[in-house]
Simulated scan of single mutants.
Amino acid sequence: MKRTIALTISALTLSAISVVGFGQAAQAAPCGYNFCLFEHDNFRGLSWQTITEGNCENVAANMNNKASSMANLSNDRVWFYNKRNCVGPDGYQARQRSEDKDLTNNGFDNKTSSIYS
Rank of each mutant, 00 (worst) to 15 (best):
K2V: 08
K2E: 13
I5D: 00
A6G: 01
L7V: 09
L7K: 04
T8C: 01
T8S: 02
S10E: 01
L12G: 12
T13Y: 12
T13R: 02
A16I: 08
A16T: 12
I17H: 10
V19Y: 14
V19P: 00
V19D: 06
V20C: 05
G21H: 09
F22C: 04
F22G: 09
G23F: 12
Q24E: 14
Q24A: 13
Q24M: 13
A25V: 07
A26N: 10
Q27T: 15
A28T: 12
A28N: 15
A28M: 10
A28S: 13
A29D: 04
C31H: 09
C31Q: 06
C31M: 03
C31N: 07
G32I: 02
N34L: 02
F35G: 02
F35P: 00
C36S: 07
L37T: 10
F38G: 01
F38V: 02
F38A: 02
F38Y: 15
E39K: 07
H40G: 04
D41R: 10
D41T: 14
F43D: 01
F43K: 02
L46M: 10
S47W: 09
S47R: 11
W48C: 03
Q49D: 12
T52C: 03
E53L: 05
E53D: 14
G54V: 04
G54P: 00
C56D: 04
C56S: 08
N58T: 08
N58P: 01
V59F: 04
A60P: 00
A61R: 10
M63A: 07
M63K: 05
N64F: 07
N64S: 12
N64K: 11
K66A: 11
K66D: 07
A67N: 03
A67E: 01
S68G: 06
S69Q: 03
S69N: 06
M70T: 12
A71R: 05
N72A: 07
N72R: 05
L73V: 07
S74T: 08
N75P: 00
N75M: 04
N75A: 13
D76M: 08
V78Y: 07
W79K: 08
F80V: 03
Y81T: 03
N82D: 15
R84I: 09
N85H: 13
C86R: 05
C86K: 06
C86V: 06
G88N: 06
P89C: 06
D90V: 07
G91T: 11
G91S: 08
Y92S: 03
Y92H: 12
Q93G: 09
A94I: 02
A94E: 03
Q96E: 15
R97H: 15
S98R: 05
S98M: 04
E99L: 09
D102T: 11
D102K: 11
L103A: 09
T104P: 00
T104A: 15
N105L: 10
N106H: 15
N106R: 12
G107S: 09
G107I: 05
D109K: 13
D109Q: 11
D109V: 09
D109G: 06
S113Q: 09
S114L: 01
S117Y: 04
S117E: 04
